[in-house]
């Protein structure tokens, strides 16, 4: 299974980025092989509008099962839900800690969008 964590940095020790739509990078982690790679999300970080939609579209296209981030806006939430991708929310941690928390079942599943409309 592949899970994706939004981050400001480029490795497991980097901080989690709580902004899903405008996260700088995606770290895609395989729970089977324990290998990971970084996917640049710069184009969406700098999107004029609709960053949530296009970030979510990108995540869907990466074929992951779950996403760990902080806040999912309503549009990102709608796209990820439609693709049946699970969303988990956490904060103040590194990517590695986020993955651990996820593995140990400590993260709440996001079932409603967190934020009001943003464009």
């Amino acid at each position: 299974m592949k899970i994706l964590v939004t981050t400001e940095g480029e490795n497991l020790q980097a901080q989690l980025d709580v902004r899903f739509g405008r996260a700088k990078n995606f770290l895609v982690y395989s729970t089977d092989t324990m290998k990971w790679n970084i996917v640049d999300n710069q184009d969406n970080q700098d999107a004029g509008h609709g960053a949530g939609v296009s970030s979510a579209q990108k995540v869907v296209d990466l074929g992951v099962t779950a996403v760990v981030s902080g806040h999912f806006g309503p549009k990102a939430y709608e796209v990820l839900s439609a693709a049946k991708i699970m969303m988990f929310s956490t904060s103040d941690c590194t990517v590695e800690e986020a993955i651990d928390r996820h593995r140990n079942g400590k993260l709440p599943l996001v079932t409603t969008p967190k934020e009001p409309q943003s464009h």
């Binding site: 999107a47 004029g48 509008h49 609709g50 960053a51 939609v53 296009s54 979510a56 579209q57 869907v60 549009k75 709608e78 796209v79 439609a82 693709a83 049946k84 409309q117 464009h119």
Partner: peptide
């Protein structure tokens, strides 16, 4: 150009406010 549409697996979505 405004990311008002998304297409995922078997669903296409429209975001009218964008």
């Amino acid at each position: 150009q405004f990311n008002a549409l998304a297409v995922v697996s078997r669903v296409s979505l429209v975001f009218p406010e964008l």
